[in-house]
Design a protein around this nucleic acid. Structure first.
Ligand code: MN
Ligand code: MN
Ligand code: ZN
Ligand code: ZN
Lengths: 147, 147
DNA sequence: AACCGCCTGCAATTGCATTGCATTGTTTAG
DNA sequence: CTAAACAATGCAATGCAATTGCAGGCGGTT
């Protein structure tokens, strides 16, 4: 039992490692820990969340870790209107292109931000000469757990 | 001609005055000027915009003017992701209720934020137990003038 | 070992939003 | 009309998140 857990943990680390490698991110200790934390969360993560989870780590390093993850397409950022940016893992095969765009939900009760990857942002028929490049749809209300 | 202009200006002031009165906002000089400025713009206005337009006015007063306008339902605020909040006049009869929600467009070239009142935010079928209260859809790209 | 580039930690700064408080202006009760 | 009550303004200070600069550390390469 104990041995199996160790093996599973090793496998997990190996998986996280691979996730980073695939996106050309060098797998440092801090990055592995941060990625593990983000992966383990059901909801999007803010810099402050990360900071709270690793109170021994430097806030700026965590900040740059998130920036790197975002730049390399490992996570995407969500501006949910709370004033602090949230981050969540990109889906498998996501290019962060307009087609990949999904809806985000912010719960006014638990104040968590949730990705809804199955809900794509509908195509909006823009006025003449307008060209869409990105889009962000944030719905606010009460989430399933809080209802 | 000159006289006509004066009369028109008086009429305009009277109109702005009425806009304020209708929303239970006391029509002070600053508020009339701010409202005139906001009305005259084709795009949404930030606090900094207002500040630049009235460099003799106090930033905080302008800030509170916008807050008051918003509270009373004269303008609505838009978080376009630039980090500074934009404000635009509410439409006639707008209750700022979910039904009133329209799409906003941010131009990456001219960096202006535009209300698209004819484009309503589509109803999204949320997962079980999720309740929608508000929604915000911001589309980014190139606007009609910049194309 | 010497080198290089990337990563990290700490300090400092920016930018925007927000609050406290004293003052001034406007409304209203007596 | 006057005084009290209330609202708006101006200025100072603060809060909070994001961002930058720089120096030291670490890992991989030759
Ligand atoms: Mn998401
Ligand atoms: Mn609008
Ligand atoms: Zn919730
Ligand atoms: Zn434009």
């Amino acid at each position: 039992m104990r041995a199996a857990m160790v093996i599973n943990y090793r496998n997990m680390l190996k998986n996280l490692d691979k996730l980073l490698q695939d996106k050309n991110i060098r797998p440092t200790a801090m990055r592995l820990l941060a990625l593990e934390y983000i992966s383990s969360q059901q909801t999007a993560v803010s810099l402050s969340d990360l900071e709270a989870a690793f109170h021994r780590a430097d806030r700026i390093t965590l900040y740059r870790t998130l920036k790197t993850f975002e730049e390399k397409g490992l996570v995407h950022s969500i501006m949910d209107g709370t004033g602090s940016v949230k981050y969540a893992l990109c889906e498998e095969g996501c290019e962060c292109a307009p087609e990949d765009l999904h809806v985000h939900f912010f719960c006014n009760k638990c104040r968590e931000t949730i990705c809804l990857p199955m809900l794509r942002i509908p195509k909006i028929p823009l006025p003449d000469n307008f060209k869409q490049e990105e889009a962000s749809l944030v719905i606010k209300g009460t989430c399933g757990r809080c209802n």
